Amino acid sequence: MAYDETSIRVLKVDEIYDRFEWVRANELAKEYKQPLACVERGIEACRVTDTPLDYFIERYLKNNKDTLKNETFENAYFDIMKRSQWRRK
């Protein structure tokens, strides 16, 4: 298969967010005025626990405590946070 102009495809915004986690993380960090590292950890926890990103946005970024707690996500998020702190030392 040859690589030519037909191989190039312009992605829609939603496709960019789905394919490139770091783009979504940057946008959420700016929108909610949160540290990028915090948002990256939340997105990673969503990915490893198969939790919808909306959960993280509602509970953590929008600080909506009415959102039911997801123990699996919570455990993964805090584990990721601990590991990232260990790496910085």
Rank of each mutant, 00 (worst) to 15 (best):
L11M: 12
L11S: 02
N63L: 08
R19I: 00
Y3K: 02
I16N: 01
L28Q: 14
V13W: 14
E44N: 07
R59N: 02
A37C: 06
K62Y: 11
Q34Y: 10
C38Y: 15
K62W: 05
R88H: 10
V48D: 13
L53I: 12
Y60I: 04
N26W: 04
D54W: 02
L61D: 13
I57A: 15
I57S: 13
Y32H: 15
D50E: 15
T67L: 10
E71I: 08
R9Q: 03
L68Q: 13
T49W: 15
V10A: 07
V39L: 14
E31G: 01
K33F: 07
A2D: 14
Y55K: 02
D66P: 03
T72E: 09
A2R: 12
T67Y: 08
M81T: 11
E31K: 15
C46F: 14
P52H: 08
E21T: 01
E21P: 05
A45G: 06
E31V: 12
M1P: 04
D54V: 00
T67D: 03
F56I: 04
F73H: 09
E15W: 07
Y32G: 04
Y77Q: 05
I80H: 02
L28N: 11
W86L: 05
V10N: 12
R83H: 03
L11Y: 10
S7T: 02
L28H: 12
Y17K: 05
K69V: 09
K62I: 07
C38L: 15
I57D: 15
L36R: 01
R88D: 15
N26S: 07
E58I: 01
I80D: 03
V23K: 09
N75A: 14
G42D: 10
